[in-house]
């Protein structure tokens, strides 16, 4: 009888609201309430899910009162972004625009300004959607995620963290605190491409590319594909044929063929059939590669 239950207006169940101000407090609450608890960041995924009864949490833990979780800063290791950083802040950050413009580009494509003013990068990743627009570019930047645990913190590569089962790798009592984007090569060209049905839409396909040129040949190279498999993926096969080669049309054609081969059709796909995703992933990959090469050439 879901027609009489599911809507995006009413939350008919009762839940307790918590607003911890420290990570230790938040973690203790998460441990105490286990499966009954849900973390609330921007709420742009969680609240609709609660209204739609996909999530029936009896404890909602707002982590926005923990100050250190919202930040964008440069450290010796690279760029650190707190989990609670708003997508709008990432879109507009001069530091990110300078060092990893790919992330501003991607953030700017998420929903609308209103959504980006609420939604956070941590929420985007922890929601574990195959089409998360931040996950694809973060993957291309070799991002390491930082997880808080009462015994200490843990680091995972984003690839490990996402692991593609509709949820991220978090144990009871753990939460994502932020991520570190290792320093990228100075002359790295990068680009993000997305196709959806409207600007407001989630991705039908998204692609990110990061690469550098050395003596006219592709040196460092990352290509990632989103919305086409249970979690965004790095396309290692494509990267390996690109590295060490001169960027030519023929080479790109070969690479994007391998990218399209990563499309893993799913029974539940309603937005677009596999054939469309294959075609579109090739188009977006060509665009992402071409734009990153152009930028890399300018920086070389």
């Amino acid at each position: 009888m879901s027609i009489n239950k599911v809507n995006t207006h009413i939350i008919p169940m009762e839940f307790q609201y918590h607003a911890p101000t420290t990570l230790a407090e938040a973690s203790a609450l998460l441990e105490k309430y286990g499966d009954e608890a849900k973390i609330l960041a921007g709420g742009t995924d969680l609240i609709p899910h609660m209204k739609q009864r996909k999530v029936e949490a009896t404890h909602v833990i707002n982590i926005k009162k923990i100050p250190e979780l919202a930040c964008i800063k440069e450290t010796s290791k690279g760029i650190e972004i707190g989990a609670n950083t708003k997508l709008r802040a990432i879109e507009l950050s001069p530091l990110i625009k300078e060092k990893t413009p790919l992330l501003s580009e991607a953030a700017a494509t998420v929903g609308s300004v209103q959504i980006r003013n609420l939604g956070t990068v941590g929420g985007n990743i922890c929601n574990a959607s195959p089409s998360a627009d931040m996950a694809t570019p973060l993957l291309a930047l070799d991002t390491v995620v930082n997880v808080y645990n009462r015994e200490g913190s843990k680091d995972y590569t984003l690839e490990e963290f996402l692991h593609g089962r509709g949820e991220v790798k978090l144990e009871p009592g753990e939460l994502l605190t932020g991520m570190t984007i290792p320093l990228q090569p100075k002359n790295a060209g990068m680009a993000f491409e997305k196709v959806g049905w409207t600007t407001f839409d989630i991705a039908t396909v998204n692609v990110a590319a990061v690469l550098t040129l050395k003596d006219g040949k592709i040196d460092h190279c990352r290509v990632t594909l989103g919305a086409c498999s249970p979690a965004p993926v790095r396309v290692y096969q494509a990267e390996s044929i690109l590295i060490g080669e001169e960027p030519t049309q023929e080479l790109f054609d070969e690479a994007v063929y391998l990218i399209a081969a990563c499309v893993e059709p799913r029974e539940s796909w309603r937005r677009a059939p596999p054939e469309y995703r294959r075609k579109a992933s090739q188009a977006l990959a060509i665009d992402a590669l071409t734009r990153s090469i152009e930028k890399a050439r300018r920086l070389a």
């Binding site: 027609i3 599911v6 809507n7 995006t8 609709p48 609308s112 049905w197 409207t198 600007t199 407001f200 839409d201 309603r270």
Partner: peptide
Amino acid sequence: RGSIANYKVPTTQD
């Protein structure tokens, strides 16, 4: 399933 998010209309940007 009645979801407006699954019923697309253009925004001014489109």
